[in-house]
Amino acid sequence: MSSRASAVFFAQNSRAFAFRSGNSAHVIRTVLWILLLGAFAVVGVCGVVQRIEWRPPVFRSATSTTDEVAQSLFGSNNGTELLAKALEKFPQDSALMVVGPGMDWRLSEMQYLASYVAWPRPVWALGQVEAGHLSIFSYLPKDDVKPAAMLFYISEPPPELAAHALTLAQDLKIVTLQ
């Protein structure tokens, strides 16, 4: 609708917006509200159009969100299934540990994803940092817990464990400890 057409449209229907009186205050109020609503509509539509996602429906996949997270973390297209298969062999009461860069927020994301998939197994996070620093993304148990497996995310297992490591994705390896 052009601006002229819009003006005519609003003018024809101005009673709806209480512009019944002919005095100047009401005319000014009418014009101001038309301008405000016009700005409201234009700015709003611009914002909505920028945010719309043009993609196929997600309801085809039962794990669409966790797959999306896995894709962004370690580049796997079916990351949820990959992780689930790798973790299902561990007893349900065994703990798991995600090891990765201690100052990288993606360590937490990896821990959350593994934790989502591994229920009811507890999943902790151990952040690797330089000596003297404290990892802000570590999530460690209060008591001594011996993990059944360690997931090395964007980090390599130490040499003594490297032989037992199984590569799940480019940035993700799993080492069975027990």
Binding site: I52, E53, P56, P57, V58, S64, T65, E68, Y112, Y116
Partner: peptide, 16 residues
């Protein structure tokens, strides 16, 4: 948009 978007971060890790 409901069926085109995933649940995103909070949707899955805080609620779902």
């Amino acid at each position: 948009q409901s069926i085109a978007q995933t649940l995103r971060w909070d949707g899955v890790f805080a609620w779902e």
